[in-house]
Every structure is written in C-alpha cells, then in structure tokens.
Design a protein around this nucleic acid. Structure first.
Lengths: 340, 340
DNA sequence: AATAGCACTCCGGCCGATAGAGTGCCAACT
DNA sequence: AGTTGGCACTCTATCGGCCGGAGTGCTATT
C-alpha cells in the first residue's frame, strides 16, 4: 500500500472518529495538513474503497472506514502517545486507593474505566475449576447451625451452612470435623460423593443428616464458571449511534445473555498478555456490528485472574481507549499481585 | 362519584391499557357494552377531566387516564379474577422446582416474573444490620491463610481471609481463636475495634498482624445494606412507550444508581404485608413518570427477608400483574420459610 | 337528561421543491 | 504520468403546504 493511501486512510479514520459522519473529499482537503486537491483525494479514496477499507453508505455521501479499515488503522497507523500512557498510569494509581477486598478493587477499576472512557465497563472474574478438596472444616455457629468450610486444591473457599443436630456437642463436632477431613482430603467431588454415600450407609459417624447435606453439596457445587459484571451501560445511551432503539435492544439483550460475551472473554484469557480489540463484526456477536470491545487480562500470583475492559461504539478513539484499558489492567494486576 | 362516571372511567382505562393511545368518545361508544351516545360520553369525560382523573394530550386527541385515574382504577374499580389467582399460584408452584440455595430461589423467582409479565424483574435481599458479634472463629486454611468466620447476633455470617504467620501452629491458632472469641463476644463493632486496639498495644497474644487485619475489618465491614438485583431489563425496550431514547436512558440510569429505588424498596419492607403499586409520579423517581413499580415483600422464619416485583410501563394490565407478583412472593416465602 | 348536528382544532402523513454535499469522469496542465 | 479544475449527475435531508381523520365543545332539539 502506498504511503499516500495510508495517509489518507488515516485522515479519513480520524475525521470519522471525530464526527461520526461519512467524510467527503472536500472536507478532508480543507481539514487537515495534507496538501492535496479534493480530486486527488477522490482518486485515492476510490482505490481504498476497492481494497475494502472504505465504503460509502450511499451514492453521494462521503466515505466511512469499514471494519477492516479501522483494523488497519489500529494495527498499523495509530500511534499511542507515550506521555498519555505515563500520565494515565500515574493518574490511575493516584486516583484509586487500595482496598484489600478483590471485589472492591474490581469495582473501583470498572468505575474508573467508565468515568475515563464514558463507555460501558466490563469485568470478569475467572473462576478456576473446583477440582479436589484440599481441606474441610466444620465450625459450630450456634446450637442450630454448622458452617462447613471447604477449600479446594486451587485455594478456592466455599462456605455452606448445614443444620445441626441438637445433641451434637462442640467436642464431638471437632472430632467429626477431623474424621471428615481425613476421609475427604484430596478427593475429587465425585469421589467425595461416593465416600459420603458409603459413610451414610454404615453411618459410622452417626451424623446421617449432616452427611446428607454435604452429599447434596458435592452433587451440586457452586459451579466453576467465570462471571461477568457490567457497569455504566447507561453511558452508551448517550451516544448518537445508539439513538435507534433496535441497536440498543440487541446490545442490552447481549448484556443479559452473557453467553456470547463470555466466549470472547475466555478467548482473551487464553491468549497472550496485552490489550485485545474486537471491532464491529470481529467479535461475531449478532446485531452488534456497531460496537467494539476492548479487553485485557489481569493477573496476580502468576495466574490469570480475569479480564476487564470496555464496550463502546465502533467509533471510539482507540488511541485513547487502548492505553486506558491497558493501564487499568496493569494497575489491578499490581494491586492483586502484591497484596496477597 | 356517580356510578355512570365510574363505569366510563373504567372503560377508558381498559381501552387505554389495551391500545396505549388516548381514547375518544366515539371509539368508546362503539367498543364496549355501554349503550350511550358519544355525546353523553363526552359530557361524562369532561367531568372526569375536571376531577383530575382524565386528561387530553392536546385539543383534539382523546383522553388518557392520569396517574390519579389509574390509581382510582387499581384501588376501587379493578377486579382480580379469583380463578386467575389460583391458576397462577398452581402454575408457579409446579413450574419452579425447589432449590436449597436462597440465591437460586430468588433467581428462579425473578426469571418467572420476567417471563410472565414481560417486564423487568427486581429483587432485593434485605440485609439486617450487623449489630453485635455473637461468635468468632479462626479456621486454618493453609500454611499461609486463615479464614476468620464472624457471626452476628442476628445469625449473619461473614468470612474474611487473613494472612497467616508462618510460625503459627494449628494448636496455637485454636487457642487464639478461643481467646478472641471470649474477648469479642457480644461486642458491637465499635467496642470490638477498641478492644482490638488495646490488644494490639499490649500484644498479649503475639499476633499483631492478625489483629490489625481484624481491626480493619471492624472499621469497614461489609455494610449491612440491602442489595438490588435486576433482570430482564431489555424486555422494556420492546415496549413502544420506550421508543424514545431519553426515557430509556433515565430508566437505565436509575437502575444503575439504585439509591432511589432502594428507598422505595425499604418503604415496602417496612409497610404491612401485601402487594404495593406505585404509579407514575407516585414513586417520586425523577424522569420516570412513564413507569409503574409493583412490589411485594417476601418473608421467612417470621422475618422480612426482602422485596420482589416488576418495573413496567405505566400502561400495564394491573389486574394481571398484581396477582403475579403476589403469587411469586408467596411462593418464595413458602419455599424459604419451610425449607430452613 | 340525553342526543344529534355543526363548526372548529389539532395532529400526522404525504407530496414537491430545494439546497447541500459528494461523486465520477474528462480534459487540461505540469 | 500523475495531478488538478470543471462539470453533470445523484442522492439525502429538510422545509412548507396541503389535506384527511379524529375528536372536542357548544347549542339546539327531543
């Protein structure tokens, strides 16, 4: 591709990002730093259209970049201001204060994403599978309840309240707790279930009811699926491109379904480190051609902890949004990694 | 109010609920079972307008019920079909299967609300205040972490992971657990904080770091505020009254803010048992004159556990929606009350 | 008291004309 | 050969005007 063409593509994209309108040759020649007549620009634009990087909505409108055009811009033309990056990084660090709780950290992070970009924020918490029981502990809560604390080999903690037999003394309970711990340590859920059934049959521990409840838990644990949380969706309603109710509806339906977006998020979790951009049709979410998704993984303790990013109109200032998402993800990684 | 007027008000409301349009005298006389000429109806409608129960959007449109008109209809004119109530009750009971987890129960309930009404569902979980510490227990999780389980006098359980000093043996830990339990039992959070500070100063237990973390918790506990959960918001986007983006935006902003809606919910929680309806301006949510909120408390173990209901257009079929919300709340109460 | 008739009002949809923006192509220029 | 100016053409969005429909309020009538 000729330098001339690249330059003009870049100018078209910039103008389009600013105005949201298709941009014509005259406007372009008057607008920028390029010293070319409208006619020359027209020729170049016709070439770019043939290459599939621009398109015109109708005969006598200007040209808009296609998804491929935007992709080319993001990949090859766009320059991220290093100052901006540093500035953002500093501003985010200073603006957000440290909380210990992971949920608070993530909440702060998305709030910051929303307020910086004015788009909808998105964060997923990657829940690793609950593969094996590491430890099980029964804590007496009252005369009527016991708290069962179950820790997985991945360090995930689950709590469950079970009813307590009135006759069960605290001493006996801690005895049972020890036996159970021995019985179930390093079992998969499936194994745990089987052992519990056997135990119920023989009822050696004489706590049939408690075992029954634990068995139920083993059959139906809180499933290890990532969860998606959105914030600031109403921001999107301010954008002129979402003036038609139809677009908005498909967007919010997608927020509710979550399924498809989860796929995208998992894709990002499994790819290499860095910010990922999905422009228009690239994310393969039906009826959402008008939106782009910018995501980045965050990490801690060397593991992938989740994904965060924003959802906004295809026409967004990528050179600004990318560093914002990048810095926020880095900040979260730093806080979560260093803090525990 | 004359019987004639009541009858006509009822007909206007019904026609309006069906069509969403202002309804004129001719249409009304042709529509229903009333044997009156358009002119007579006009007279009555003029009276009703003077009473503030009807209004016309402009000179030559028909009449729509005002908020007061709808209120009058809901309070005095509407008849709820007893069959419908029984039928709904049975259908909900059979359609939803029992889960033990409260969150699953609520999720099912709102899903059912959404699918039956085609409006947005809403559920709040009332979190009672965390007034006094009933019990505190430290559970060893691994060589690096301890799980602190804190139970309030209301029976609410909070968990918190704290870092573990490498030298701390399991035996010593259960010792500390006992001492702490003695130290903090029946303290308010404020007292607990003070005692912890004193303890840190003297450091009798030689676990400064652990105490510090607990102190932080006492200063900043998960606050005892009700939380609001929505579902099916995108349903609202299908309604013609939300065709204008402005209306939608204020609605979704309200969903995000939650503050104002929480007030409404708390109001319902504190009132007596039964379904509450807020029509248009009655809920005092700015810019949301076009929506009505239908809510009902649900209970269990004799306590108020929370509120559930729907948010939909002011033009909804109250005679259908009220029993739906009522039955769902009763079902939830039954399941939560009988199950634990 | 109810009704029929009538004049009046207002909204919404449907042209038709116009201005504006932009393109494509051709011929001229460097 | 690439660039430029000119020109005819096209398409859209907008504005004003013009009805037809629906509905009201008032008045005279039964």
């Amino acid at each position: 591709m000729k330098e001339r063409h690249e330059f003009i593509l870049g100018e078209v994209v910039k103008a389009y990002l600013d105005t949201g309108q298709a941009v014509g040759s005259r406007a372009l020649s008057e607008r920028g730093d390029l010293e070319l007549s409208p006619a020359s620009i027209r020729n170049a634009m016709a070439d770019l259209e043939r290459m599939g990087l621009l398109c015109s909505p109708h005969t006598s409108a200007g040209r808009k970049p296609t998804d491929s055009g935007l992709r080319y811009f993001v990949d090859s033309l766009m320059v991220v201001d290093a100052n901006l990056h540093n500035h953002l990084s500093a501003s985010i660090s200073s603006h957000l204060n440290l909380k210990r709780d992971i949920n608070q950290v993530l909440q702060q992070a998305t709030d910051e994403l929303v307020s910086l970009t004015r788009f909808a924020g998105l964060v997923s918490v990657h829940e690793p599978d609950f593969s094996r029981i590491e430890k099980i502990e029964l804590v007496p809560i009252s005369t009527e309840q016991i708290l069962a604390v179950i820790v997985s080999s991945e360090g995930k903690v689950q709590n469950r309240l079970v009813r307590r037999d009135a006759q069960l003394s605290d001493g006996r309970l801690s005895e049972i707790s020890r036996s159970l711990s021995e019985l179930l340590s390093h079992c998969s859920l499936e194994e745990a279930r089987e052992r519990l059934i056997r135990e119920i049959d023989h009822d050696r521990l004489r706590i049939r009811q408690l075992l029954e409840e634990l068995k139920q838990w083993a059959e139906n644990p809180t499933k290890g699926k990532s969860d998606l949380i959105f914030s600031g969706q109403s921001q999107l309603l301010k954008m002129p491109e979402f003036g038609v109710i139809e677009t908005v509806r498909s967007l919010f339906t997608a927020f509710e379904e979550k399924e498809d977006l989860l796929k995208l998020v998992e894709q990002v979790e499994q790819s290499e480190h860095g910010v990922k951009v999905f422009i228009g049709h690239e994310h393969a979410l039906i009826d959402m051609d008008e939106v782009s998704v910018v995501l980045s993984r965050y990490e801690g303790e060397g593991r992938v902890l989740g994904t965060l990013g924003v959802i906004g109109p295809k026409r967004m200032h990528y050179e600004r949004v990318l560093p914002i998402v990048d810095c926020t993800a880095r900040w979260v990684s730093r806080v979560l990694g260093g803090n525990r």
